[in-house]
Design a protein around this nucleic acid. Structure first.
Lengths: 111, 111
DNA sequence: TCCATATTTCCAATATCGTGGAAATATGGA
DNA sequence: TCCATATTTCCACGATATTGGAAATATGGA
């Protein structure tokens, strides 16, 4: 991943509402959620949410797809794993003290 | 890790200069680098860099320690691994398609 | 004590971000 | 065609972030 892309994904997640949106979409899984449901879940006006979804979308972290009158947004799992890998390779440089807890986490809770 | 802390670390890294500072400090390892060297390496005026170091420092990603006339900054490896774990546990919810590439990365390049 | 070096703090200017009202667009159904 | 629903775009305001000049602080050495 290039730095530009990583920066835009980091900024996208570096905001309370957007982080919540992303988490919600991760929980929702591959089926995603319509924009309206997200707005309702987070108590954010739909136009405000739209702007935030746009930022997440342009960073590549989420994708929207029209389905009837709704637009269904879903998390892009490749993107988040790409960001995590970026942080590890670019920032951690193979240090064991960084990798060990991550591996531990991945093994126990994740995969 | 709490959301607040993760947000402040994400914002800290979500800026070109600060991401560069952090990378530089990771490369420098546990010995760290004096503020002046960082400023010179990135061609940023020292007072501007100071503000950026302050943000990184308040987020917990770096630490500064005076040594003579210089202040030596170093990356906090626990913090970055904590952030990575946060992204995995909080955002990924044990999905294999997120974890697999991370594990792969960790195994091949990292540890 | 006085001076040079290293860094920070103070401050103000500019830029970017977050927010939401109002209007516009897209879709589906009667 | 007309209307209701779902979402976005346009726009402007207030808030926050980034930047760097100038002055202040801290340290070490002569």
């Amino acid at each position: 991943m290039e730095t530009k892309a990583a920066l835009s994904q980091l900024s996208a997640l570096a905001q309370e509402n957007r982080l919540s949106v992303f988490r919600l979409l991760v929980k929702a899984g591959h089926d995603g959620l319509p924009a309206g449901d997200i707005a309702a879940a987070l108590s954010v006006p739909p136009n405000t949410l739209s702007a935030q979804l746009n930022i997440l979308s342009q960073s590549g972290l989420v994708t929207g797809q029209r389905q009837g009158r709704s637009i269904i947004y879903s998390a892009n799992f490749d993107a988040i794993s790409g960001l995590i890998v970026f942080l590890m390779e670019d920032c951690c440089e193979g240090r064991e003290d960084v990798c060990a807890p991550v591996l531990e986490m991945a093994r126990s809770a994740c995969c």
